[in-house]
């Protein structure tokens, strides 16, 4: 068990989400940075999609009730009883130790995974918290000070007593996830249904910088910049949407739907972000500038494959290194 000794608002239990129920209006939810959640889980020997804690407000303090392997990935700067941990790191805590996580300067969200995963009851196949639906996670609500969370049974893998980490994805795959010369995130997207109806404004959508406004949360990011507008009104019928869709309400400032995206939408949509770039957006803080880059299905495939390779390498190598370290320590 672990106890939430201190937490900011809107920190929740998440896994890889609850896909498959959009057709009954159920939001997918899940980690805003699914790559960081996946790696956090692999570091403690869990399945990639085990439930972990997503932190977006800080500081957070977690007390371990017994010896527990844990990992911290994504943003956030972690210390165990005052000892600073390297980023993207797994360590074994002793009973009574306190893990403190402070915000990081560059990334918005930290993921803390525990050996065995957070053991809350799955709802419709997922342990993700749906704040809007008020189900999943811990009673369908954000974590509160004093919450005690049960952990599942650890996998058989023996984790190295001295801890270990991984090279963060932005370092390992730096060339695949570029930023512009002015620091703007380059986010790849494909034109969507109403793209061409924006006329000349559609070109500006791709060439000008957008800023993530303060009206941004797990549901969606409102972007600020020079408004873009349809050349003429269009009839829209409500349709299913996925995270990453870039909609343009009448005001002309785009909205990017994120993990807690509505399941249906009726605003004209100018673009859809490729999934491989969504985790970077999930880690982008309010005020971050970004620019959209027109991509193809082939590029999206290549990026998906690169991420899958990175995840596969982490999984295989972590297991091998764990075995090797155990073999040496066992003497």
């Amino acid at each position: 068990m672990i106890e939430i000794v201190d937490t900011g608002p809107l920190n929740t239990i998440q896994d890889l989400g609850r896909p498959g129920y959009r057709d009954i209006g159920v939001t997918v939810s899940g980690a805003m940075d699914p790559l960081a959640l996946t790696i956090a889980n692999l570091l403690v020997g869990n399945d990639a999609g085990a439930a972990a804690v997503e932190l977006q407000t800080f500081p957070v303090r977690i007390r371990f009730e017994q010896n527990t392997a844990f990992s911290v990935t994504g943003g956030g700067s972690a210390a165990l009883d005052g000892e600073t941990l390297p980023p993207w790191w797994m360590q074994i805590a002793d009973a009574g130790q306190i893990l403190e996580i402070l915000p990081s300067k560059t990334s918005a969200r930290a993921y803390v995974a525990f050996e065995g995963g957070v053991d809350v009851a799955p709802v419709m196949g997922s342990r993700s918290t749906s704040l809007r639906g008020a189900f999943g996670g811990n009673d369908g609500r954000a974590l509160r000070k004093g919450d005690v969370l049960r952990l599942g049974s650890p996998a058989a893998d023996v984790l190295p007593a001295g801890g270990f980490g991984v090279v963060p994805p932005l370092r390992e795959m730096a060339s695949l996830f570029p930023v512009a010369e002015n620091g703007a995130l380059l986010i790849r997207a494909l034109p969507a249904g109403e793209h061409d109806l924006f006329g000349a404004d559609a070109e500006r959508f791709w060439t000008e910088d957008w800023k993530i406004s303060a009206q941004s949360d797990r549901t969606g990011y409102r972007l600020s910049g020079n408004p873009i507008r349809l050349t003429e009104p269009v009839e829209m019928r409500s349709h299913g949407i996925v995270a990453g869709v870039v909609q343009v309400p009448p005001g002309g400032e785009p909205i990017v739907q994120m993990s807690d995206a509505n399941t249906a939408g009726g605003y004209p949509k100018i673009a859809g972000i490729v999934e491989a770039d969504l985790w970077r957006l999930g880690q982008a803080r309010i005020g971050t500038r970004l620019r959209f880059v027109r991509a193809t299905h082939a590029e999206a495939r290549m990026l998906d494959q690169a991420i899958a390779t990175y995840i596969g390498d982490v999984e295989t190598t972590a297991r091998q290194v764990g075995r090797a370290l155990k073999a040496m320590a066992g003497r």
Partner: peptide
């Protein structure tokens, strides 16, 4: 205390 790491593929051993 950790002084450095050893990199094996993407894994870092302290």
């Amino acid at each position: 205390d950790i002084l450095a790491c050893l990199r094996i593929g993407p894994v870092l051993v302290p």
